[in-house]
Design a protein around this nucleic acid. Sequence first.
DNA 1: GTCTATAAATTGATAGAC
DNA 2: GTCTATCAATTTATAGAC
Lengths: 211, 211
Amino acid sequence: MTTRLAAPARARLVRGRSGERRPAYDPDSLLDVAVTVFNERGYDGTSMEQLARMAGISKSSIYHHVAGKEALLRVALDRALDALFAVCEEPGSTTGPAIDRLRYVIHRSIEVLDQELPYVTLLLRVRGNTPTELAALERRRAFDRFVAKLVARAAEDGDLRAELDPALATRLIFGMINSIAEWYHPGGELSVKELADGVVNLVLGESHQPG
Amino acid sequence: MTTRLAAPARARLVRGRSGERRPAYDPDSLLDVAVTVFNERGYDGTSMEQLARMAGISKSSIYHHVAGKEALLRVALDRALDALFAVCEEPGSTTGPAIDRLRYVIHRSIEVLDQELPYVTLLLRVRGNTPTELAALERRRAFDRFVAKLVARAAEDGDLRAELDPALATRLIFGMINSIAEWYHPGGELSVKELADGVVNLVLGESHQPG
DNA sequence: GTCTATAAATTGATAGAC
DNA sequence: GTCTATCAATTTATAGAC
């Protein structure tokens, strides 16, 4: 399945809603294209030439919008990481019993996956080949540590069904959550709520999220 | 963590156990090196030059052993897929109640992950950029279908704890299993048995594998 | 079975016109 | 903001000596 992106028309002048002409490409729409192609072919497997073809502009035009290929990657990865860390700041993640916080973070993480799927998918595939990728991996590890603490506290409270080492449980649970990016399609038959409830049900033995 | 592989000595003549001289490189040991580097930097992110440096031989020497970069990938992916399909043929996967077969396949899949970790890891990261990769993805889907049938039958028998759609359960469970490749180290503190029991415990609600 | 040298194509990125 | 033309470096792969 090769996604066909912007027809050349998209790169040309477009009529705005009041009829004015405006440039078709801002950095954001270019980012959308780039992330889609990166996810399809892998970051290293994508050339600027391919990127340009999919965006419907020439290779050199891309450099008018962004500093280079790695800058595109950095912005994309930060978008995913910012969304994940925002969840950690929400009241549901910082107040109440650890097991409830954990359920909340699992639910919200899956919602972030739904809302920012291409960006999170890209993040999950980063290997650490460049400074940009290493920085992203370090931020991702910080998120993992936040969740691991919740799991450990829920285990101390005796609220985890499975008798599992908390660190192992964290890895397995978030391994499951992250794997969703490989097949989930937002807006499809399976709703985010069904999906999140299913995961919580499977790993924590509860059917519904309170609230 | 940049793995340091073969010292140059490895590429030179080596004394066999009876003192005879023999060439240091056969296709198999080259494959081991290649798969390690592919997993570290990604297949597309690895050049033949880097491969040669890690193997301790020159770039052109590699072409004496294999047809090219993609041939190395194909052999590696087949090794992982052959190991997974072998599990499907084992008696534990083909006889008895579906829930027992499922438990068996989960256990054995994790054992394959342990025994063939670099090869399975590489398989799990394939994106479909080349004919070789597409063929591997198709074989992988065939394995998924085999497991999905077991989950569906176990659900029909009423033997699945979670009230989940079988296809969804399959994806979540094997998403969890596959994610193990991202952090697991064979021969470390966590044994394969503990790991497999932990996964089965978490998703099927059982602590031990019979047998 | 290894090497050096090199081919042929592709890569990320820049210069400068419109 | 887009383009063509181009660069320097890198990439996969081959030729041919030892």
